Simulated scan of single mutants.
Amino acid sequence: MTDSVPVRVGKRERLADAAARVFHEQGVEKTTIADIARVAEVPVGNVYYYFKTKDQLIQAAIGAHARTAREVLAELERYETPAQRLQALVRGWVEQRETAVRFGCPSGTLATELDKRADGLDEELAAVMRELLGWIEAQFAAMGRADARELAVALLASYQGISLLTNTFRDPGLMEAEGRRLVAWIDSLEAVTSRTADR
């Protein structure tokens, strides 16, 4: 997620982006509609024109997560090879290490909170994370890996785990080290695939 709410979008999108940011920084339960309005620079009364309830703001935040993820993945498509795209994804995660130190992974922390509710919003966020997982799997498949699904799960699980540890220990170096390991791991997988293809 970004640290500031874009000003080029309309009020609904500003509120959705603000909700995603404030829920990440404060947690869903502690966040008030007034908090979101303040970050979005929208009068509190105007919020209710777009979103009648806090749950609708949570849905909007999930939509903001989806939009951000799709923008990131579209940007990664400019890299020539699937291995380069995966490595760029990892480097992007590492660039967010200071945010992870303070608040953890935006999607991961929200998923943990929503899991404790019984309103189905956790499934909406799971769909966003499945989209990311599917993209990662497609990159491994494009590398010729028959175990693309397992590798995708391993990569995403590694990121979620290191985000948790980085936040728990307040140590950005953990994410830097894991990022280097993952980049090297992707290199090693590509090398193995290339050797196998040459036989």
Rank of each mutant, 00 (worst) to 15 (best):
H65K: 14
T68H: 15
A74T: 03
E75A: 14
E77R: 11
R78G: 04
R78M: 12
R78W: 12
Y79C: 08
Y79A: 03
T81H: 15
T81E: 11
R85D: 01
L86S: 02
Q87D: 03
A88P: 07
L89D: 02
L89R: 03
V90L: 11
R91A: 14
G92F: 10
G92I: 08
W93N: 13
P106R: 15
P106K: 14
S107H: 07
S107A: 15
T109R: 09
E113S: 11
E113G: 02
K116M: 14
R117H: 12
R117D: 02
G120R: 08
D122W: 12
A127T: 11
M129Q: 15
E131Q: 13
G134Q: 11
G134L: 03
E137D: 14
Q139T: 04
Q139E: 13
A142C: 09
A148M: 08
A152Y: 01
V153F: 14
G161S: 05
G161M: 03
S163N: 13
L165P: 05
T166E: 04
N167L: 09
T168G: 07
F169M: 14
D171N: 15
D171C: 11
P172L: 08
G173W: 13
G173R: 15
A177M: 09
A177P: 09
A177V: 09
V183K: 06
A184V: 07
A184M: 10
A184P: 09
I186H: 04
S188F: 11
L189H: 07
L189G: 00
L189T: 03
T193G: 09
T193D: 05
R195M: 10
D198C: 06
